[in-house]
Amino acid sequence: MISLQELDTIGEIPQEEYVLKCTSACAGCSDSLALRYVLKAAGPDTVLVVPACCTSVIQGIYPNTAFNIPVYNIAFAAAAACASGMSNAFRATGKKTNVIVYAGDGGTLDIGIQSMSGAFERGTDFLYICYDNEAYGNTGMQRSGATPMGARTTTTPTGKIDAKKDIDAIIAAHNPPYMATAAAAYPQDLFKKVQKALTFRGPSFIHVLAPCPPGWRFSTEKTVEIGKLAVKSGMWILYEREFGKLTINPQSKAAMKRPVPLEEYLAPQGRFKGIDAKTFETLRQHLVKNIKKLSAEEAEE
């Protein structure tokens, strides 16, 4: 068993900051919030590989950088492949440096899926983190494979017709030693999961829900609240899979038993404004189905 540092309070998370002040992130940004805890968990012997996404923008303009850690920016489709070369080079020279891909949902579910699948299949020793704001945020909120049904984006002005792609099922099919979901609204949980992921040799994956105030159209002080509502409504389920064994977080277990109504999660978000009853019902059914599927999987074990 992997022993984990027990973290009862957020005060026990290291004081070191790797995401410094003066990022160009929007107010209430989940990307920088999540990254702050990811890097605290990973520590200084880490290289971040970043494809085109909000993170390539918020780190600042050359010659400045707001991240106190080496960041290698790479083309959109290439993050996992680049990390795969980097990890092999570090291991070939006896270095234990963590190689972490920090990519958005576009770079993960869509344009980057091929290189990511290849890197997982080859057993690359790295951690792949997808921070998911459910659209192409960097270019101004166009739909992505991660956009939920009914959500309006600039390329789905009347709401997305197709359902969100289940990237976690795709990752699970690669049988990585460790994979998890997390949310920027639960930083302690994210911190623990990153620390744990980095103890495994081989590929690990963390899928982080990252609510986006301008993209989802809610006011900036509500980022954490919306993230918590995603979990409490059962729309986002926090869990981890260690060598295939599923463990659902207590917060999500409670939510799965008595979810807050989906309306409470959708109502504060402008992107769901005017969602029709049929789409809403389909979304709700997806949610129920997903809860059943994960509960059954956990019960089986």
């Binding site: 200084p44 600042g60 303009i61 950088t65 850690i69 080496p70 960041v71 290698y72 440096t97």
Partner: peptide, 10 residues
């Protein structure tokens, strides 16, 4: 990593 830098950013 002992001398962190950004590569290929904006």
């Amino acid at each position: 990593p002992k001398n962190p830098a950004g590569y290929g950013g904006l």
